[in-house]
């Protein structure tokens, strides 16, 4: 067990613990901030996997964008000067069923997929290859995703103007 393993376990612990707290804490703002640590931990794991571009994008999109919007939503929709923003548990049985189903799918796909093993010591810069792949091999998917996002953007703008 070398240092990188230790760092991995640290990030993994951060991710899992904070994800656990996101779900269990009763204060929505606390949940949002635990989510920050979850994203951070996942970004760290991405870096350890050699996927540094994904890690950065994870931080930019989730921490810099989505989390901030989430906090905005929480703070604007609730009574803003009140510290106690509580959330309760409802529909326990259907929720458990849903989670069990989802966990089953995840576990099944995890065990049945033939994972590619890559020597983790070699951490080549992935950004350039990623760019080439996106523009050459997956150009169509890339463009379609772009159009999808554009449609979402236009839809949001037109809804906001009403």
């Amino acid at each position: 067990m070398n240092v990188y393993d230790l760092i991995f376990y640290l990030f993994a612990a951060i991710t899992i613990l904070s994800a656990f707290f996101v779900v269990t804490t009763r204060n929505i703002v606390y949940s949002a901030y635990y989510l920050l640590f979850t994203f951070f931990g996942i970004a760290g794991i991405y870096v350890l996997l050699g996927a540094d571009f994904i890690a950065m994008v994870q931080l930019i999109v989730y921490v810099g964008g989505i989390l901030i919007l989430l906090l905005f939503g929480v703070m604007l929709t609730n009574k803003i000067t009140n510290v106690d923003i509580k959330s309760g548990t409802i529909h326990t049985v259907p929720a458990t069923l849903g989670v069990a189903l989802f966990a089953g799918i995840l576990l099944a796909s995890m065990w049945n997929t033939n994972w590619k093993n890559v020597n983790s010591d070699i951490q080549a810069a992935s950004t350039q290859n990623l760019g080439f792949l996106l523009i050459h091999q997956y150009a169509l998917v890339f463009e379609l995703l772009g159009i999808l996002l554009l449609i979402a953007l236009i839809g949001a703008a037109s809804m906001a103007r009403k």
Partner: peptide, 13 residues
């Protein structure tokens, strides 16, 4: 650019 996202979260906090 990614790291400066933490500043926003901290300021909101």
């Amino acid at each position: 650019i990614a790291a400066s996202g933490f500043v926003v979260a901290g300021i909101l906090m």
